[in-house]
Design a protein around this nucleic acid. Structure first.
Length: 576
DNA sequence: GCCGTTTTCGGCCCGACTGTTTTCAGTCG
């Protein structure tokens, strides 16, 4: 089992122990261990066998033994017992904002309610208010929260998870059989922030062994459907995977069709029709029935008289006309990113020292980074006091002298307080090279209040970047109620950059808002919000969003060289 | 469950907010 698999088991165990009301520190220990295992470069099972795993910070004998048990049996007895005790629907109820583990388990114990639908029924029929500690108001809040959940499809899986599954399956298939070509398609390939399922296209001469091969993959749960040109099945985490099997010469056509989006593909078909051609999943045909060959997708776009359209743009939002007129944007690539302006260290809630973060960023080839630990009021993240922050400034100064080839900006992630005022006065903030501000409390404010609060921070003149502007967390929390059009407008007016937060559970701004922000003339920054050195690699997910948003190099301030970035920061300060 | 040690158990990241109570438990960040 891969390290991510062990991590998933310990996370699930922690979730169940929370339902049971176990010691919170034990629960935290499992979650910390899961994080550690996931970012471990060595094989956890091997280390456990050698008795070395427990030497890692945060992992002791108990977790080493459990890791061995998982490696040997594929599961954990303790977890299986808990799964038998609670139906799966109980955990689902904790997705509803306002319902935590205690309430979910109370509702299950007292009312036998185990699932979102039953929960809604219980709330509507006034049963919830009969429970101790719950009244009419709780019932109304729960119903309102469920309405909001329905607006957004919370069942969709974050891209990072879909990515891991599809990469793992592709690796498995291509290392166990002779394939001509294999690739992820669908929303994974379009790099959509969340995916409904995982699509894979496989080009192969002889497909007879494929269904059996897939059944032997470690992530396989059960088959839904299988014949010679398609296998549909569920994989770990209840994710549906759809493998299309085609002959090698059909591969580019099938890949194009399966990548979609549906609307984009329909648009391509209509372009083909105007040229007297017919485009389908197995080829491009002349009216005479004669087939036009293609060895790649690029050939097909060429045959249709247009530029190659990168998968990220295939959403039918103007890309076809732009490609016909050969005016597609030059999308960002990894090499365009010259720095990362939002990350944490062990001074607040990060795991590693500023030195380690700088070293890792240097290894990524960055020209500069900003260390941005939390300000004092964010106690849960061990926010720094003013005094401590001043000490960190001195430490960063010494660090700057020690590292050649990468510039360390002193920054801060500043909490925007409930009323829109800032956690520190300007007399303190003026000491920092860069100020990243964000909302971390009072998420339930009405739209007008929340918008005014963020706008006030933008207008303060002390803030350079608004981080994760909508506050959403994928699969867990919708964004707060905020008028983003107003925020964008004010950000443009005051020359404050809006962040694309690359953390896989955030991806905030999303691509739709990022594109609107760009079109309004806003500056954008792509940051990882990394809490350890591995998370600096999340930048690629931020790039995906930026590409989907049609962003180009001039729009994104961390593609600028240091001198230009510093000029921008200086000009902002002078105006304030 | 892990850690650190002042070697064998106590501390581990805290505080605001809400809705229910009538002094607090649960949720959230």
């Amino acid at each position: 089992m891969a390290n991510a698999g062990f991590a998933a088991v310990f996370r699930e165990l922690a979730d169940y122990l929370e339902l049971k009301g176990e010691n919170p520190f034990k629960i935290r220990a499992y979650r910390r261990a899961a994080d550690t295992l996931e970012s471990l470069s060595e094989d956890a099972a091997q280390l456990a066998r050698e008795g070395q795993l427990k030497n890692i910070q945060g992992i002791g004998t108990a977790i080493e033994e459990k890791t061995l048990e998982i490696a040997d049996s594929g599961t954990l007895k303790a977890l299986e017992d808990l799964r038998a005790e609670y139906p799966p629907g109980v955990m689902d109820m904790t997705k509803v904002p306002g319902i935590g583990p205690k309430t979910a388990s109370l509702i299950f114990r007292e009312l036998g309610v185990a699932g979102i639908d039953q929960l809604e029924e219980a709330a509507r029929s006034g049963k919830l208010r009969t429970l101790p500690g719950m009244g009419q108001k709780s019932e109304e809040n729960i119903l309102r929260a469920m309405e909001k959940l329905k607006e957004e499809d919370m069942a969709r899986i974050p891209l990072a998870i879909a990515d891991r599954l599809s990469a793992s399956l592709i690796d498995f298939i291509s290392s166990h059989t002779e394939v001509s070509e294999i690739a992820a398609a669908g929303s994974v390939r379009r790099r959509k922030e969340t995916c409904g399922d995982v699509d894979i296209v496989l080009g192969i001469e002889d497909s007879s062994g494929i269904p059996d091969l897939i059944r032997s993959w470690s992530g396989f749960l059960g088959t839904c459907f299988s014949d010679e040109d398609r296998v549909t099945f569920t994989a770990e985490g209840d994710v549906e995977i759809d493998v299309s099997i085609v002959r090698p010469e059909e591969f580019p056509f099938a890949l194009l069709a399966t990548t979609g989006s549906k609307l984009h593909y329909a648009g391509l078909k209509s372009v083909a029709r105007k040229l007297g051609l017919r485009l389908s999943g197995d080829g491009l045909f002349y009216e005479t029935g004669k087939k036009q060959g293609a060895i790649s997708e690029a050939d097909i776009y060429e045959a249709l008289g247009m530029e190659y359209i990168p998968p990220e743009l295939r959403e039918m939002t103007g890309e076809i006309d732009a490609a016909l007129e050969r005016r597609l944007p030059r999308l960002l690539v990894a090499g365009d990113i010259l720095g990362d302006l939002h990350m944490h260290t062990n001074w607040s809630d990060g795991r590693e020292s500023p030195e380690s973060m700088v070293e890792a960023a240097k290894a990524l080839g960055y020209e500069y980074i900003a260390i941005t630990d939390h300000s004092k009021s964010l106690k849960v993240a061990r926010g720094l006091s003013e005094t401590k922050h001043m000490k960190q400034l001195e430490a960063l100064g010494r660090l700057r002298d020690r590292f050649a080839g990468i510039h360390v900006l002193s920054g801060i992630e500043l909490k925007i307080l409930k009323d829109g005022s800032l956690d520190y006065p300007d007399s303190i903030l003026s000491h920092f090279d860069i100020v990243v501000a964000s909302v971390h409390s009072a998420f339930g404010q009405p739209e007008g209040v929340m918008t005014g609060r963020i706008v006030k921070a933008i207008q303060s003149g002390s803030v350079d970047i608004i981080a994760h502007p909508t506050g959403r967390v994928l699969g867990r929390r919708l964004g707060y109620d905020v008028n983003m059009d107003t925020v964008i407008q004010e950000a443009v007016r005051h020359n404050v950059a809006l962040e694309i937060n690359a953390y896989p559970e955030r991806l905030d701004l999303d691509s739709t808002w990022a594109r609107k922000a760009k079109e309004a003339g806003a500056c954008i920054v792509i940051n990882t919000d990394a809490h350890n050195v591995n998370e600096l690699r999340f930048m690629s997910y931020g790039l995906d969003v930026a590409r989907r948003a049609w962003l180009e190099q001039p729009h994104v301030i961390n593609t600028w060289h240091l001198s230009k970035l510093q000029d921008w920061l200086k000009r902002r300060r002078m105006r304030a």
